[in-house]
Simulated scan of single mutants.
Amino acid sequence: MIGDDEGSDLLDILGNRNRRRIIGLLREKPCYVTEIAERLMLNPKAVIDHLQYMERAEFLSSRTDTRRRKYYCLVRDISIEIKVAEPPVMMQQEFSSHELFLQSVLNLRSLLDARNRHIETLEYLESDLDAALDDLVSTSKEILAGETEINLITALCNSDLSVSEIQRITDIPVSLIEHSLARLEGGGIVTRHGQKYSVREINGKRTKR
């Protein structure tokens, strides 16, 4: 039995499309913040907010691996049963059974077509993202100092971030983040705007995201 407070949290979670998408992804396997952001094409800061909300509501839990990446997983799955009241008899009689059936077929076909289009687009983008990440790794060998800086650049390609925000997303120690950012800034790879860091502008234009 779900209490009033828990029921309210559940409605807040299910009422947000991106939280539903995150839950769907975590049904497949535990994921860390950057992985969720890249697969769902979301801002890492927004992903953190959603994950922290669902963790406070005790729908998620987290653990940190040996590489200091924080993985999130479902504590319990969510199953909703919806009961729909029968329409008044007069309303049912306005349409024949044949007409109602055809309308149901058209509605189902329309939704399936829309879903397939989205799946094809996402698969295409996932392939492009994988290729872009491979290009980043292969071209960074003489530029970046290992996986830490690759993770920093990947995070900054999503959004301008502060040191504390980068730490929450990547779980890299703050001292190492500050050292790497200083080196990348000195190399003209990232720039700083107040407390935020971003990838360097190229020919007056911000690197595409």
Rank of each mutant, 00 (worst) to 15 (best):
L156D: 02
Y71D: 05
R69D: 09
S180K: 04
H98Y: 14
H50D: 07
D12S: 12
L144P: 05
I172F: 02
L100A: 01
L161V: 06
S162Q: 00
L136Q: 03
M54I: 05
E81Q: 08
L102V: 08
N16Y: 01
K205V: 15
D65N: 15
E185W: 01
N158R: 10
E86F: 01
E165W: 05
G194L: 03
E178N: 03
E126H: 12
E6A: 11
M91H: 05
E147V: 04
F59D: 05
V190E: 06
L10A: 03
D171Y: 14
N107Q: 15
P173I: 03
K196F: 14
L122K: 10
V174G: 10
V89C: 02
S175H: 08
L176M: 10
S61A: 12
V47H: 08
L60A: 06
P87E: 12
D171I: 12
R27D: 11
S159K: 13
H98Q: 15
V47Y: 02
I166A: 01
I78T: 03
E55S: 10
Q103K: 14
E28S: 14
R168V: 03
V33F: 00
H98R: 14
R21L: 13
L184E: 12
H118T: 08
I48C: 04
D134C: 07
A57R: 07
E149N: 08
D4Q: 09
R109V: 01
N18W: 00
E35N: 11
Y53I: 11
I119N: 05
R206K: 14
H98E: 15
L129V: 09
L26N: 05
E149M: 11
G15L: 00
V47S: 06
R68H: 11
V89T: 13
I48V: 13
D134E: 15
K70C: 10
E178L: 05
G187D: 13
S97H: 14
H50G: 00
Y72D: 07
A37S: 02
E142A: 14
I169M: 01
L26T: 02
R39P: 00
L144C: 07
D171A: 15
G187Y: 04
R56A: 13
Y124W: 08
Y32M: 02
D65W: 04
D77I: 13
S162R: 08
